[in-house]
Simulated scan of single mutants.
Amino acid sequence: MNGLVLAIDTATPAVTAGVVRRDASEVKVLGERVTLDARAHAEQLTPNVLGAMADAGVAMADLDAVVVGCGPGPFTGLRVGMATAAAYAHALDVPVYGVCSLDAIGIDTLGEALVVTDARRREVYWARYRDGVRVGGPEVSAPADVPAGALTVAGSPDHAALFDLPRLTPTYPTASGLVRVVGFSQPPEPLVPLYLRRPDAKPRSEQTR
């Protein structure tokens, strides 16, 4: 698929929105806004989308598709991005593609790389990559329980620092990374969030038991 793509990710503290032009030869970012604030997903996503659209000089009606990171990530932030992406796609009658947010980081790595992001509870979300292609994960675990074997690490700076490995530049999902990992040749599948574990909140009936 060629054309203009709106890319959104809220699976990490980075609230990312960008407009990307995709054709047979390249992926070009026309506008991108990123806010680093783990508590501002709901407040910042729409302003970032509108800002990216203005920077790109395009209108909503010009979009041909929407891409959204489906995690893994915390429940609240992840829902904000996925619900927003689905709403835009429905309103514009364009397809929406979900991707693993870690892939949008890992695609810019070389060799045997580990990508990690904050899973809270002293744990990390992680996946393994070989020359930008995922070969393991995504999973969630304590840093000490992540299987060895990677030669470098990328992702959340604070959590990448927990591993005694050379650090790579990619830290958070980018608009370019989100679009480049999509298999546009296939019809989009239903959006499925990668929570990887149950929510902290429990139904009252379960609390009683």
Rank of each mutant, 00 (worst) to 15 (best):
6 L>S: 14
6 L>R: 06
8 I>P: 08
9 D>Y: 00
9 D>C: 00
10 T>G: 06
12 T>I: 10
15 V>K: 00
16 T>M: 08
20 V>N: 02
20 V>M: 05
22 R>G: 04
29 V>S: 11
29 V>P: 06
35 T>W: 00
37 D>M: 03
37 D>Q: 02
37 D>W: 06
38 A>Q: 13
41 H>N: 11
45 L>T: 04
45 L>D: 05
47 P>V: 02
51 G>W: 00
53 M>V: 01
54 A>V: 03
55 D>F: 04
56 A>L: 02
59 A>K: 15
60 M>C: 08
66 V>T: 05
67 V>P: 10
69 G>F: 03
71 G>L: 06
71 G>M: 07
72 P>R: 03
74 P>I: 00
76 T>C: 12
76 T>W: 06
77 G>Q: 02
77 G>E: 00
81 G>S: 11
82 M>L: 13
84 T>E: 09
85 A>H: 01
87 A>F: 00
88 Y>W: 15
92 L>Y: 04
93 D>M: 06
98 G>D: 04
99 V>H: 04
102 L>G: 07
103 D>W: 03
104 A>I: 01
104 A>G: 04
108 D>L: 04
109 T>Y: 14
111 G>T: 02
112 E>I: 00
113 A>F: 13
115 V>Q: 02
116 V>C: 07
117 T>F: 03
125 Y>M: 02
127 A>R: 06
128 R>P: 08
129 Y>V: 03
131 D>F: 09
131 D>E: 14
131 D>Q: 10
134 R>E: 11
135 V>D: 15
136 G>H: 04
137 G>W: 07
138 P>A: 05
139 E>Y: 14
139 E>H: 13
140 V>M: 12
140 V>N: 13
141 S>F: 06
143 P>T: 03
144 A>G: 09
146 V>Q: 04
148 A>E: 15
150 A>P: 15
152 T>G: 13
152 T>I: 08
154 A>V: 03
155 G>Y: 08
157 P>S: 03
158 D>Q: 14
159 H>Q: 08
159 H>I: 01
162 L>A: 12
162 L>M: 08
164 D>N: 14
164 D>I: 09
167 R>F: 09
170 P>Y: 05
170 P>A: 11
171 T>E: 15
173 P>A: 12
174 T>V: 07
176 S>G: 12
178 L>Q: 01
179 V>P: 12
180 R>K: 15
184 F>P: 13
185 S>P: 04
186 Q>C: 07
191 L>F: 01
191 L>M: 09
192 V>F: 12
201 A>H: 09
205 S>C: 05
205 S>E: 15
206 E>R: 13
208 T>W: 10
